[in-house]
Design a protein around this nucleic acid. Sequence first.
DNA 1: TACATAACCTAGTATTTTAGTCAAGTATTT
DNA 2: AAATACTTGACTAAAATACTAGGTTATGTA
Lengths: 151, 151
Amino acid sequence: MKMTTKGRYAVTAMLDIALHDSKGSVNLADIAKRQDISLTYLEQLFSKLKRHKLVESVRGPGGGYRLALAADAITIAKIIYSVDESIDVTRCKGKQNCQGNLRCLTHDLWMELNMNISRFLNGLTLSDLIKRNNVKHVSERQDVALLQLQS
Amino acid sequence: MKMTTKGRYAVTAMLDIALHDSKGSVNLADIAKRQDISLTYLEQLFSKLKRHKLVESVRGPGGGYRLALAADAITIAKIIYSVDESIDVTRCKGKQNCQGNLRCLTHDLWMELNMNISRFLNGLTLSDLIKRNNVKHVSERQDVALLQLQS
DNA sequence: TACATAACCTAGTATTTTAGTCAAGTATTT
DNA sequence: AAATACTTGACTAAAATACTAGGTTATGTA
């Protein structure tokens, strides 16, 4: 699998929006501060998230991003897929040409692992995460920190 | 997670030994040919596998490597861990210092994914893989190919 | 209308990781 | 002694990652 900061940041940022979308839209500068992610890097990620129709943008003052779907319709798998292009652990991308033009000895093993990971990430949505106590606590801590920063 | 050719090659090579250990020991040159892996690269991997006591080496002519444990006692997780050092998807390596010195918003999510992957890879041994029909078929094909190469 | 705000876009780049190679060993069997 | 096979460590090209810089465009507000 390819599990990089790109995927981690994307999930974190999407979760941040889900937690703060009471105000209509959330701007990237706030997410950047709350989550300690570079603003310009976030912009790149959101260009992909928008292309995959997971968010909608509102331009101009007071604008920002909001979820394009309900939080319980956005799975973690979709988010990671949108920015990382793939969550594949095989070398051949499932094409079975890992040894010459045939399957390598462990091809099916990696395919199984793929399925296992996919099942987990597909079965988990943003709304599932929001409900969790640890997420609530961390989010509250971040909100307080941002307020102190601005005062 | 870090799932690279290192881990994939290691599992493939270990499986190759498990499939051919009737002769006492298997030398790396044969594995390299059967599995299309660079010999010197394999040497590096086996130095780690030996250090982690998954294989034993037999030096001198006719030597090679053999499993240090029964095939049903060697899990895929152990093999990957031996060469890749970790199958972790968090950024903080589980240390909870992903945001300053505190947990980031998605820390627990990645820990859960870690557990999920670990459960799968820990529950699967070399002997499980040997029993599979697709592994048998690919292995037979590789043996025939090696014989033709040598004649 | 001007201006501030925030999304949007295109390059470029430093750093890290990966996937190896190369060379010079050491140990063991025949 | 000679052949075979494992051992070790340093080195490297190429790719991927994680950014930064510097702009443009759209839109709401004074």
